[in-house]
Design a protein around this nucleic acid. Structure first.
Lengths: 351, 351
DNA sequence: ATTTAGCACTCTGCCCTTCTGAGTGCTAAT
DNA sequence: ATTAGCACTCAGAAGGGCAGAGTGCTAAAT
């Protein structure tokens, strides 16, 4: 797409004016805004050209122009200046990042909420579950004579535990045996490798405490399952309604539905190798997003896994600002994970 | 409020018809529905009476009547028949209750989601944090020479753990000491009783490992704090928009805002001694709920604490059905907590 | 003393028309 | 290539008229 300088200037002005006002932009307002030294007729001619190229569109014959998705795309790729965060903004973001929260769920909760507040769009946070999780280590703790706690540490540094009660008395030795058996046979295995045969043979090795093995193993499997699955948090749904493009319920409702379903939001992702992504209107696969845009940024969760945070809004979104804030926030999250000790209720495991 | 039988019949018919259709109810449709054997004029007279009593209201002179908040209240208290769940409904609810989820957060997540699906109204689930939580027991597990896991069991049966890394090597004996120290000084205390002095004196007792005490203790304090705080989950916000009374964005938006804020929803409660509660329109304290209704039901979380589940909808809500479903679901949750082992990642502690 | 038939009246929602103003596209002149 | 000028288009607001639902009241009937 080759545009003259003047055309670029015009396109950019249209986009920015439209982002501001949500009203179709006429030739005169362009002149007011940009410092083009031409007449409105010239601008009109250029706009006709840009429309022919599919960069602008006209809601109806006698209205101004609004950016077409292609126009936004061009703007985002080539025209948009990087938004420089103001001191206030970084201040606010930093403050938001000083959440002293340890649990994964909470972090994501907060992240979503904060981004939404910060951008005025509905936001979400995803943690892409660790692809290949294994149990790294089992521990068993005798609590009373008839109860013990099993602690499972997974390869991604997460710790889970559960209390088990038993109908009979258990001795320390038996527990010892259980622990070494579990550590011997089930560490380093992915969920799939927990085969029924393996479990059976381990149970048999345990003799009279055979039930214990299956109990703890099924707990471990739950943990693996959970660690593998994505965590999705959405926040700020209410802010949808404050944007004029969603005044129309027929637009707002499908979007809300979409955002209310975890599997939808969970499917949004950033291609390997990139750290951010912008999806404009029809570039979205899902029908419900066809006239909305999505801005995504990735953060580093430590153990080679990336999480995603993002916002959804009208195509008339303030891409520059949103992107800048999102990136900054994502970087902050990465740092949190790095220096800190997030993974759920435990500390990050480095090796 | 004394009403004749006929008046009650009419009021009830108006309410039920209006719940169904969302349209003002005229004298003729009342005759069609109920088996009153009088003329429409008589009904009109009665309706005028009911209106004078503040039980019905008229959107405008030439329209039918709609129930006033007082009318709903009367209906709910005296007229409403208990909704009998159909086989399908119980089926569906039972299915929903067979979530094999252990973690508190998840249960609440699911509960909210399910109730919303089941009722078609936005729903929420609250766990009212245990009022007086203490640490019941500390455990420490050596993981490597320079790392250990601390496990904290609280009085409400919750288990939390965290991994601590250290810059120096630690021996088993030291850990032993740490554990007995913690168990000796900090069990049975509420958060407030973790005084700086106590912590200081305990640290000193530990000599070279003084840092360990403060680390674990501050972790324990986080856990207590967390156990004490409410958990609020909201779901199904999108279903708001499918009800005609919220077609008007100026109604929908404040409600969504309200529901998006945890502290608002967290404030909803059921008085001691009751198990359910219905709040109709202006009976609600919060401005945003003035023309919506809330139905609440409590469930038993085991350790003398009650959780609340509820839905929010237009005053024209199908109270009977919603209440029945909510109660059933709440009972199911109570059972889950009872037989099962919910509290977060651990099992319920019975004594 | 109730109940009812009958009727005039009220008001909303809908459709249709008109009008206005913003903004265009085109033509002819520069 | 640019511009002034002008006719044209169209959405949205404003207003008028109409139909239908439903009321409240009066006077008659039970």
């Amino acid at each position: 797409m080759d545009l003259t300088d003047r055309q670029k200037r015009i396109l950019r002005t249209v986009v920015e004016l439209y982002i501001e006002t949500a009203e179709p932009v006429g030739s005169k307002s362009i002149l007011e805004r940009s410092d083009l030294r031409v007449s409105s007729a010239t601008v009109r001619n250029e706009m006709a050209e840009l429309t022919a190229l599919g960069l602008l569109e006209q809601p109806h014959t006698s209205a101004g122009r609004i950016p077409a998705p292609k126009g936004y795309r061009f703007y985002v790729n080539d025209l948009m200046e990087e938004h420089r965060l103001s001191l206030q903004e970084t201040e606010r973001l930093n403050q938001a990042l000083h959440l002293k929260i340890r649990e994964m769920d909470r972090v994501m909760d907060e992240a979503g909420r904060l981004i939404s507040q910060l951008t005025q769009y509905p936001a979400f946070a995803l943690s892409s579950g660790a692809a290949r999780v294994t149990v790294k280590r089992f521990d068993v703790l005798l609590v009373e004579r008839q109860a013990f706690i099993a602690v499972v540490m997974t390869s991604n540094g997460h710790l889970s535990n559960r209390l088990f009660r038993l109908p009979y008395v258990m001795d320390r030795q038996q527990l010892q045996l259980l622990a070494s058996l579990l550590n011997g046979s089930f560490t380093g295995l992915t969920l799939e490798e927990f085969t029924p045969e393996l479990i059976r043979s381990a149970s048999q090795a345990m003799e009279d405490g055979a039930g214990l093995v299956t109990m703890v193993i099924s707990f471990a499997m739950e943990v693996l399952e959970e660690q593998r699955s994505k965590l999705v948090r959405t926040a700020g749904l209410d802010s949808i309604l404050s944007h004029p493009e969603y005044r129309d319920l027929d637009r707002a409702q499908p979007l809300m539905r979409y955002l209310s379903q975890e599997e939808n939001v969970g499917a949004l992702s950033v291609p390997e190798g990139e750290t951010t992504r912008i999806l404009i209107g029809p570039e979205n696969v899902h029908e419900a997003l066809k006239d909305s845009s999505v801005v995504l940024a990735t953060y580093d969760m430590g153990d080679n896994t990336r999480g995603v945070i993002g916002v959804v809004g009208p195509t008339r979104m303030d891409y520059a600002t949103v992107l800048a804030r999102l990136e900054y926030f994502a970087k902050g999250l990465s740092q949190l994970f790095e220096q800190n000790q997030l993974p759920t209720a435990g500390e990050k495991e480095d090796v």
